[in-house]
Design a protein around this nucleic acid. Structure first.
Lengths: 353, 353
DNA sequence: AAACTCGTTCAAAACGCTTTGGACAAGGGT
DNA sequence: ACCCTTGTCCAAAGCGTTTTGAACGAGTTT
């Protein structure tokens, strides 16, 4: 309807109008201007679909949300999208979002996106150690960027946050605070991030000559975390500090501590991971590790853009640093005299100020 | 590449193949089967873009996330998408998501979606009382469904949760518990939901002959809520119960209560709205109102489908009920003898069990 | 004066599908 | 014998772009 309309009212050919709007200097400057003006006047917008058909690209990229009913409390994906969105918009690409529970249905969602060329590339988040999605995409040689690594040996583009380093730093902090029995409340190790975070914890404890046996794993929900934490706290060698792979697990741990008659921040130090908003709602405020999720999203989008422009995914990897946010849920080990100087804490807890 | 390929290898015309796959009975059953088999064999998938161009529809619908940096903690949109996704997938429509902060940029996002026919319709969430997005869409006569009502007189399709009824029920509960000074900690009334919830609170208090003057408004964050709640709690006629338009506000209120030396659930009853996951992490667990967000999303998608099929938006409105979830943050009014029987509460708070 | 270059424009093809308007043969009714 | 219907198939047009290959006149070179 549209290029043709401009062409007609200007007495030009469709070709010339198209090229003029494309800014090619093979069309005379005067004509180019004339076309631009007319396009402006009638509010012309190129029909995306037609352009897509002609160019053979769908000018869209896909993202599949693992929509586990009840796991929607995870702001991670929203933040990720907030990072992705602007970069894609800048490149005039659409973001197509699907929701599918992990499992066969999830893979079918990817299938669906590749079929019929709905998208030019996809973004994969929350990788698992053996990740069939990654394998599928690699097998089909389809452009993608993942958030997180996997065990697949083949190279691909990824962005990840350095969970191992973060956990190592947190462990070191606890060791510095005098803790000697430092437990890990981990998420299921099938998730790569859990595996990664465990590695940092274990590495640091071993280097310090401490036991790395105080570990429990559970689904990353508060209820499951509480139960898993309780098993640790009831052991004879119960930890004085608990590193948690997730803020939600930390919330469970804090509840378990209360159940065991412990005061969080005094009898038991708890450190979380994610810095979810609720970390500041609870009492004591949760000491936790923050990861740059929006930035990850933006980087993933940028990488995918590069890949679509021809870059080799094998060269695109980025490890993003985290930040430890000290609040009130950790402190010196019980019966430990020397406290590290210069650290300020909320007062020990569970009585109101 | 594809319809033609099947046509060629079967010695048929593209037309016939297209119609055969379309299931038209104008093509002989035997031929239809032959085509279907061959399509299956070579894994044929219709090119969506071509179909879109031909049909003039984009077979996609849009959703713009209000990506306020720092407001990503809101699981609302994720839940909404989880409800929307499957319905759209069933109808073979794509969901295109954009992120834009409220304001002019947001409107430009909608503009962007309409331009070049990127989508056939849009979904609007979190309406405001004067909502320029709604006005824009109505002005352009573009198919859409909103979550929430507005002040625009023109009829349109919406799904909403009955916040007024919910707040009325919560108010009645508090009145039944003996409370006489029931405050409202509201979100900014420019949001329609805030206005709606306030109405339910006010209506009920007036009907009971109670003062509806204990009201404070703030941005729906914990910090702002804490401050606003404090102004209420420091009044000479401080409330004994606080209805909050949002769980995040409730978290702020609970913190304010602690700051004022009050025990939540005993000295001050607090009721939230949303049933965010953290509502069970905090202590005491938050009594709150749950709304069916996934279901809202599903209904919105269904309505939009109907509109695209030709239905009149003016006839499509749905009000969804809420559910009051009683936990530990509310209780009988202080100095109130008769407690309502049969209700179980967590023990009053702030000391560990 | 013929041949060539350059700048500007355009007709036509292509992308892969759906739809329109027949074509053609076989069978049935008159 | 003729016309009409019915069943099956197809050529061609069209959706709105971009791209290819060429046309054409003016100026430049030989």
């Amino acid at each position: 309807m549209s290029l043709a309309k401009i062409a007609q009212s200007l007495g030009l050919s469709v070709t010339t109008v198209s090229r003029a709007l494309g800014g090619f200097d093979e069309v005379a400057l005067a004509t180019r201007e004339r076309v631009r003006a007319e396009a402006e006047r009638i509010g012309y917008r190129a029909n995306k679909t037609a352009r897509r058909l002609q160019s053979g690209r769908s000018e869209a990229i896909g993202l599949v949300l693992p929509a586990n009913p009840g796991q929607f409390d995870d702001p991670f994906f929203l933040r990720l999208m907030a990072g992705i969105g602007p970069r894609l918009a800048e490149a005039d690409l659409d973001l197509i979002v699907m929701a599918a529970p992990p499992g066969p249905e999830e893979l079918r969602a990817y299938q669906h996106l590749l079929d019929g060329r709905r998208v030019d590339g996809v973004l994969v988040a929350r990788t698992r150690r053996h990740d069939e999605r990654i394998a599928f995409l690699l097998d089909h040689n389809f452009p993608f960027v993942a958030h997180g690594r996997t065990q697949d040996r083949r190279p691909y583009a990824w962005v990840d946050t350095d969970g191992a380093a973060a956990m190592a730093a947190a462990s070191e902090r606890l060791i510095g605070l005098g803790h000697r029995r430092i437990g890990l409340l981990n998420a299921l190790p099938s998730f790569n991030y859990a595996h990664d975070r465990e590695a940092g914890w274990r590495r640091t404890l071993r280097a310090a000559g401490l036991a790395d046996t105080l570990i429990a794993e559970s689904a990353p929900t508060e209820a499951d975390g509480e139960q898993a934490a309780r098993t640790l706290l009831q052991r004879p060698d119960a930890p004085t500090a608990l590193l948690c792979a997730t803020d939600r697990l930390a919330a469970g741990a804090m509840r378990a501590a209360i159940g065991c008659g412990l005061v969080v921040g005094r009898d038991l130090s708890v450190i979380g991971f994610d810095n979810l908003p609720f970390a500041t709602y609870i009492h004591p405020r949760l000491t936790t590790i923050e990861q740059p999720v929006e930035q990850s999203g933006a980087m993933m989008a940028d990488m995918l853009l590069q890949i679509l422009a021809g870059a080799d995914p094998a060269g695109l990897q980025a490890m993003l640093p985290t930040r430890l946010i000290v609040r009130g849920s950790d402190g010196p080990a019980p019966n430990h005299q020397e406290t590290t100087p210069g650290e300020t804490h909320e007062p020990p807890v569970s009585v109101r100020p």
